[in-house]
Amino acid sequence: MSAPVLVEEHADRVVLRLNRPEVRNAIDLATVEALHEACRMLEKEPRIALIIGAGGTFAAGADIGELRERRRDDALAGINSGLFGRIQRLPMPTIALIDGFALGGGAELAYACDFRIGTPEARIGNPEPGLGILAAAGASWRLKELIGEPLAKEVLLAGRILTADEARDTHLLSDVVPADQLEDAGHRLADRIAAQAPLAVRLTKAAFHAPREAHPLIDDLAQAVLFETQEKDERMTAFLERRAKKEHP
């Protein structure tokens, strides 16, 4: 049996490829465990993560066969919500690369990422009420923050599926590219992130997601840490030297 998630490691990033194309990458318990293992790796050695689906689909939802058998205690265990919260809290940014369907739990996985890039075939939505349940793994609050309350209610309460253009117009997708360029587009964004100071990126992400009442203390503390780093001195010195050369060639 093939692994539900294929992991491709690079020096500054990791590609996580959902690998159940025969069921449109439906998220089952094995996938959840594999993604938890990937999170453990990324927490121990922080790197950018790109998440993509195999076979022309990101993830068409949770595994309905498994989901049908789940009961109260399974819901209270937060199987998917715990995972997606962990993904959102990863130290370095995450990028969801969406081709085809990102529905239900697949959409909620994408919402938990810091960035989303899609193809023209991308379709994003939460049809859970049509199955007698709700989108309980983050959509009920993340989606409102991402696209605003009126449209989020259409998706969550009326079953609206967003096209790629609609998702880009609301900034749910930061870009739409042809399918054969999707992974390259993700790596270009990862390159831009990787060009920044890694610790500055980590602390900026942490401050960004901190609750309002934590500011400005968390910003001041993070800045205090960064002010003492050698990388800050080296980058600022290099900046000043480049500017001096331009002013006095």
Score class of each variant (00 low, 15 high):
84 F>P: 07
42 L>C: 10
44 K>S: 13
100 G>V: 10
126 N>D: 11
45 E>L: 07
126 N>R: 03
106 G>S: 12
100 G>R: 05
112 A>K: 10
59 A>K: 03
63 D>R: 00
58 F>E: 00
117 I>R: 03
135 A>Y: 01
68 R>D: 06
48 I>F: 09
43 E>N: 05
79 I>Q: 06
40 R>V: 15
74 D>W: 12
116 R>C: 15
94 T>R: 08
115 F>S: 12
78 G>Y: 03
137 A>L: 15
138 G>K: 12
53 G>D: 03
105 G>F: 08
45 E>T: 15
58 F>K: 01
93 P>R: 06
139 A>M: 01
87 I>F: 12
124 I>V: 07
135 A>P: 01
95 I>N: 01
81 S>K: 11
84 F>H: 10
41 M>A: 15
136 A>W: 02
94 T>V: 09
47 R>T: 01
82 G>R: 11
95 I>G: 00
132 G>F: 10
77 A>T: 07
56 G>V: 14
135 A>N: 03
131 L>R: 13
75 A>N: 06
71 R>Q: 15
108 E>N: 13
101 F>N: 14
41 M>N: 04
64 I>S: 10
105 G>T: 11
140 S>A: 13
40 R>E: 15
81 S>P: 00
96 A>W: 07
119 T>A: 13
61 G>H: 01
97 L>C: 02
70 R>Y: 13
112 A>T: 14
44 K>H: 08
133 I>A: 14
69 E>K: 09
57 T>K: 03
48 I>W: 04
83 L>S: 09
93 P>Y: 06
99 D>S: 08
85 G>V: 04
87 I>D: 10
41 M>K: 09
108 E>D: 05
88 Q>T: 15
68 R>Q: 11
119 T>Y: 08
106 G>Q: 09
71 R>V: 12
78 G>A: 08
122 A>Y: 04
89 R>V: 03
51 I>E: 08
92 M>S: 04
89 R>W: 04
130 G>F: 06
136 A>N: 08
80 N>R: 05
137 A>D: 14
135 A>C: 03
104 G>C: 05
140 S>Y: 05
121 E>R: 15
139 A>Q: 00
114 D>I: 00
105 G>I: 13
97 L>T: 02
89 R>G: 11
90 L>S: 04
119 T>K: 10
125 G>C: 04
80 N>Q: 13
129 P>D: 10
41 M>S: 14
40 R>G: 14
76 L>S: 05
81 S>M: 04
86 R>Y: 07
88 Q>E: 15
91 P>S: 11
50 L>E: 06
128 E>L: 12
76 L>Q: 08
110 A>K: 06
79 I>F: 02
76 L>T: 02
49 A>K: 08
127 P>Y: 02
128 E>H: 07
84 F>N: 05
45 E>I: 12
68 R>G: 07
139 A>F: 01
64 I>H: 05
116 R>Q: 12
127 P>V: 07
132 G>Y: 12
91 P>R: 11
58 F>L: 02
41 M>D: 12
53 G>M: 09
67 L>Y: 03
55 G>T: 09
111 Y>M: 14
98 I>A: 03
52 I>Y: 04
44 K>Q: 08
81 S>R: 14
116 R>L: 15
57 T>H: 09
115 F>L: 14
57 T>R: 02
50 L>P: 01
89 R>N: 14
42 L>A: 10
47 R>I: 02
99 D>I: 00
117 I>W: 05
128 E>C: 09
49 A>V: 09
46 P>E: 03
